[in-house]
Amino acid sequence: MTTLDINHGGDAKANRPYHQTYTQASHFRSKDEEFDAVKIGMWLFLATEVLLFAGLFVGYAIFRMMHPEAFANGSHYLDWKWGCLNTIVLLFSSWTIATAIGNAQRNEQKALRRNLLITIACALLFVGIKLTFEYMPKWSGWFLSIDPALSHYESSKTALGGMLHFVEGYGGKRPGSLFDYPFAENPYEPMWWSIYYCATGIHATHVLIGVGLISWLYLRARKLHFGPGHYNAVEIVGLYWHIVDLIWIFLFPLLYLIH
């Protein structure tokens, strides 16, 4: 209400972009004070995010300790190469959004928009890979794998000189009651899948929220809302995006690499 008075200052200001005419909300004494406040607020929110996922990590640790075989058996079905690719995708997107903040500070409008778009694309790519190559095959049907170690799962076709395998889906590896019990090789394996789907599902939801936020940044960036005088939103969404990345950095080894 108080921050969107774009034409507040009359004609002289009307022709200048928003980030140059921006003044802080009326209860702050200066723009710097507002910027600090917004950043502290975001860091506190990030603390809540860490604690939210902490619950899942503690659950993981306890059930892993109680049923190590079930967890080893379950993680065996995850393809670390897709996980690794997704890690690279997210790390790259963290770099692009960090660069976007720098672009806003230096008033590089074109690069800012480009970097925001790349970040959105990476986020969508992450979710796409997750759905297409990780969730779907575990539910049913055939899927594409780049992991030769999985070729003994009745792989019937290969492509690109053995680089790609079409593998029959594992089916039944779904969360909770959707789990097909005949597939369980260990009585506690359904729990592994529950934790896997809860952790990665809640993380993927955060990625999608990030897509929404960064799209909002992009739309505002097109209206020249961000620049050296004002880039609060880019800064704090950037922080949010880093925590989403960071959580994946922990999920990836815990789920895919430890056997």
Partner: peptide, 30 residues
């Protein structure tokens, strides 16, 4: 700020427990 997110994930898992029977808290499912 520091305690509420933990009940958040707990209650969320409890909702999943009821809707999908994920079995993290339900002794009948291990």
């Amino acid at each position: 700020v520091l305690a509420t997110p933990v009940i958040g994930i707990t209650l969320l898992l409890l909702v999943f427990e009821r809707l999908f029977h994920v079995g993290i808290f339900d002794p009948a499912l291990g």
